[in-house]
């Protein structure tokens, strides 16, 4: 599970949960694998990303690389910055661990890099 995916997952549809976002990450195995860097693409994705959530997630995994806490202006041409974001969004991957609903505490296991977000019928 890449942090891009973490950024768009929510446990809101659990009955009784109102926001369910962001999910907490507990990782026991994190891998960084090289993905082709496309600066234009990263710049296009960035406006769709919840910056604070990405920052906290990356920091909790020790991969924030001293990026600014607030999204800077004019990042489109800042290749170094985009390269770091590329790494955080697409190269850092949680292989084993779990996601945890911030309200209900419901745990979602991550195995072989795949999060199991299936709910039982009585949970929705």
């Amino acid at each position: 599970m890449k942090l891009l995916t973490h950024n768009v997952l929510t446990s809101k549809c659990i009955r009784g949960v109102t926001v369910g976002y962001p999910l907490l990450i507990k990782a026991t195995n994190v891998k960084v694998s090289e993905v082709e860097f496309k600066p234009d693409f990263v710049a296009k994705v960035l406006p769709k990303i919840e910056w604070d959530v990405l920052a906290n997630a990356a920091e909790s995994l020790g991969h924030w690389q001293n990026l600014p806490k607030e999204l800077p202006n004019n990042y489109e041409n800042d290749t170094d910055f985009l390269k770091k974001i590329h790494r955080v969004l697409l190269e850092v991957e949680v292989i084993q661990g779990e996601l945890i609903c911030p309200e209900s505490g419901r745990k979602f296991p991550i195995t072989n890099g795949i999060a199991n977000m299936l709910l039982n019928e009585d949970e929705v």
Binding site: M1, K2, L4, T5, V8, L9, T10, S11, K12, C13, Y21, V35, K48, L90, G113, I114, A115, N116, M117, L118, L119, V124
Partner: peptide
Amino acid sequence: SIVESVEMNLTNMFRC
């Protein structure tokens, strides 16, 4: 290619 795979019912746990 890269595809992010998630065990999920339809898209019910995505917020995007």
